[in-house]
């Protein structure tokens, strides 16, 4: 299953090549594209020609990168110091296993056993000064034969089905978006479709900044994996999205106010096709849509997200129906756009 392979692939910001190669290979094998562009910072921009020669340039975007840890120093005793790349809650790190570097060397993030901790230590989260990765080597030389400064470390989570109609795995933000776009790419429309698999979203929406410039679209949709905060002790109004209630549309976040017209058209399409949708509550976070909207003279954009619990951690959880409904919503919107001759 492609979603499984995407979820288990390792690609932190700036080091997306494994994910990129996986997507590229899949596209080539299934003959899904008419042109593939790789740019200087690693975006993969896939063009699918329209059946008509004109029509608006429609851009779909999802980011390939996931949050990761970067090795910042190899200590004399062979332990690895690291820094987060993208937003990670440091409290979740301790006691996890990781793969380090391109060769996926196994390691663990250790901690002092509870027996030896003072009571106040147990209540204090571990910071970057206390945390390290242990590869099981005894010296700097040994460690440096396996990894180098600048390598990334990733959670080792494997993808699987889970509970009641759910998936669990790592990096759903935003491999689920990539997976949705791969499904959409299987269809051909009257207008030219540009599907951008972007890089470095997690550290400042950087891939989309240049992908938008290159494509210069007339309209863009960003597909995301967004936080679902429907967990105990979170009040209803603080739950940004809920699992199982359908794809989430953004009315505003810290990077973008999506085009009101475009959002209302997408809602209409959902209504016509009986696809459940929810409006994302809260305005935290940012997406590639912010940068694409600000491209050149401006682009109408909207954001459609698959709700995922526990994102930016080792295991996120999402609902199968939400995933499938997101694919349906995007496809049906594009069909509607086509029926209207590409005019909103």
């Amino acid at each position: 299953m492609l979603l499984k392979r995407l979820s288990e692939a390792c690609g932190g910001p700036g080091k997306e090549s494994v994910v990129r190669d996986l997507i590229k290979q899949e596209i080539t094998e299934q003959n899904l594209a008419d042109e593939i562009i790789c740019d200087a910072i690693g975006n993969l921009i896939v063009k699918k020609d329209g059946t008509k020669s004109d029509g608006p340039k429609v851009m779909l975007a999802a980011h390939m990168d996931e949050v990761a840890l970067m090795i910042s120093n190899v200590e004399k005793n062979g332990l690895l110091k690291f820094k987060p790349v993208g937003g990670i809650d440091l409290r979740i790190l301790v006691g996890k296993s990781v793969y380090v570097g391109a060769n996926k060397v196994s390691g663990v993030i250790g901690a002092k056993p509870i027996h030896m901790q003072r009571p106040e230590e147990r209540n204090t989260p571990l910071g970057l000064n206390e945390l390290y990765i242990d590869l099981g080597v005894r010296s700097q030389e040994e460690a440096e034969r396996l990894v180098k400064v600048g390598d990334y470390a990733y959670f080792t989570t494997s993808f699987s089905e889970f509970g009641d109609n759910l998936y669990k795995g790592k990096a759903f933000d935003d491999r689920v978006g990539c997976a949705v776009l791969m499904e959409v790419l299987k269809e051909r429309y009257e207008f030219p479709l540009y599907v951008a698999f972007t890089v470095q979203e997690e550290i400042g929406l950087r891939g989309s900044t240049v992908a938008g410039y290159t494509v210069e679209p007339d309209l863009a949709l960003v597909i995301e994996g967004t936080a679902a905060n429907d967990i105990p002790d979170s009040k209803e109004h603080q739950q940004s999205t809920n699992l199982g209630k359908g794809p989430a549309l953004t009315m505003m976040d810290r990077s973008v106010i999506p085009n009101p017209r475009l959002v209302s058209e997408i809602l209409k399409v959902a209504d016509e096709h009986k696809i459940p949708v929810q409006i994302r509550r809260g305005t935290q976070g940012g997406t590639d849509a912010g940068k694409i909207q600000g491209t050149k003279g401006g682009v109408p954009v909207a954001v459609i997200s698959v709700p995922c619990r526990y994102i930016h951690g080792p295991v996120s959880v999402m609902n199968k129906n939400d995933y499938n409904n997101t694919i349906e919503l995007v496809k049906n919107f594009l069909k509607t756009l086509e029926q209207r001759g590409g005019v909103l």
């Binding site: 987060p84 400042g204 240049v210």
Partner: peptide, 24 residues
């Protein structure tokens, strides 16, 4: 010396990289 910099905001590199269609 090798220098690992995960958060790239602090130097001109950050601005240069995302100019136009992207600069190595």
């Amino acid at each position: 010396s090798p220098e690992a910099t995960p958060s790239p905001g602090g130097t001109d590199t950050y601005a240069m990289q995302v100019t136009r269609s992207g600069i190595p």
